[in-house]
């Protein structure tokens, strides 16, 4: 165990000293920073003068008051968080001031998962280039001359890559969300307390996905002994794989088997998609709904809307198959094959 810790420390140092890895880490901080800046800029509050002008314009329009009243009855249908927000929402709609307020809830659904995926791709590259450099330079054989226990060497490298990626994912996401909460506080926005849990879970799941991507990139490169081969395979899977899944006869449930859907399910907590409703739900001739005896509108909607929810566990199960296969092949190949 002590030997493995020493090996892992050595690999962590090797990781830190690799310039390509440092550049990718820098990108993993800078790019979410740019996303944050874009989000902050695009939600900047209008000036008092702009609002006043827009309000006057809206109030002078016939039907404005009626729309505000409708919004107050169903705020969510009109894009408002609550009835109190309706007048401002309607002013926005009627006056063309479409810039939305900063919303932590929207960030959790949109930019948050986007940041995770970006960092995951960057750390996948870091894992791949970390192993690729050892093979390209031939220094892998040198390392094995100092410790020939191949399984231990593989594990130490994988642990270093996984740990490094987890730290980068945590730092990058914590900075992002700290920035969002800071700006929200400055703008007098008080996000619901329950959102904090959502953010915490998003950070935790995101860090897991980032670590998995980094270790996956590392494992594939240890298998193929080339960064280019790894990237080529992933590109092929992304393009050809998606196309293949799209045309496979999977009973209209093809999205369930697409990589992006499963990654999103794990990162976001669930992935909602739509599939073709069952044929018996609609009349073939008229296209109208065919309800079962005594079926309520809600029950019909549940049965026939085609709405599908892919859970975290569903996504994890899907991702576990190629991940475990890749890790097994990688470690098995490294143990058995000659090292140049």
């Amino acid at each position: 165990m002590g030997d493995l810790l020493r090996l892992t420390r050595t690999e962590l140092r090797r990781l830190r000293w690799r310039r390509a890895v440092l550049l990718l880490v820098a990108a993993a901080i800078v790019i979410p920073g740019l996303v944050w800046a874009t989000s902050v800029w695009s939600t900047r509050p209008y000036s008092d003068a702009e609002i006043q002008r827009a309000r006057e314009q809206a109030l002078s329009q016939p039907g404005f008051e009626r729309d505000v009243a409708r919004c107050e009855r169903h705020p969510h249908r009109y894009g408002a968080d609550s009835a109190a927000d309706c007048e401002e929402q309607m002013v926005t709609s009627w006056s063309g001031l479409y810039r939305q307020r900063l919303s932590v809830a929207r960030e959790v659904r949109g930019n948050g998962p986007g940041v995770v995926v970006t960092v995951a791709v960057l750390m996948l590259l870091a894992g791949a280039t970390f192993a690729g450099a050892d093979w390209a330079s031939g220094s892998m054989s040198n390392q094995l001359l100092f410790d020939p226990r191949r399984t231990a060497v593989w594990v130490a490298k994988a642990v270093a890559v996984g740990l490094g990626a987890t730290v980068v994912a945590l730092v990058s996401q914590l900075l992002y969300w700290a920035g969002i909460y800071l700006v929200a506080a400055q703008r007098g926005i008080d996000p619901p307390a329950a959102l904090r849990d959502d953010v915490a879970w998003l950070i935790a799941r995101g860090s897991f996905v980032v670590a998995l991507a980094a270790v996956g990139g590392f494992a594939l490169t240890m298998l193929f002994r080339s960064t280019v081969a790894t990237l080529g395979l992933l590109f092929a899977v992304a393009v050809a794989g998606t196309f293949a899944v799209a045309v496979l006869p999977l009973g209209g449930n093809n999205e369930r088997y697409m990589v992006h859907a499963n990654v999103n399910a794990v990162v976001s907590g669930q992935h909602v998609y739509w599939r073709e409703p069952p044929e018996e739900c609609f009349d073939r001739r008229t296209g109208g709904p065919v309800r079962l005896d005594g079926e309520s509108a809600r029950a019909f909607d549940e049965r026939c809307s085609g709405r599908q929810v892919l859970s975290v566990w569903g996504g994890l199960g899907y991702l576990a198959v190629p991940t475990l296969l890749g890790l097994g092949l990688s470690i098995g190949s490294f143990r058995r094959r000659d090292v140049p």
Binding site: R6, R14, A133, D134, S137, S141, F146, D147
Partner: peptide, 28 residues
């Protein structure tokens, strides 16, 4: 056992000392 097999093989962007440090750390 110390060995040099064929051509020397080290990480090109590391300094000579960094390359040795990596190997020295491996064996403590």
């Amino acid at each position: 056992v110390g060995a040099v097999v064929e051509m020397p093989k080290f990480l090109p962007n590391f300094t000579g000392r960094q390359n040795l440090r990596m190997l020295a750390d491996t064996i403590g």
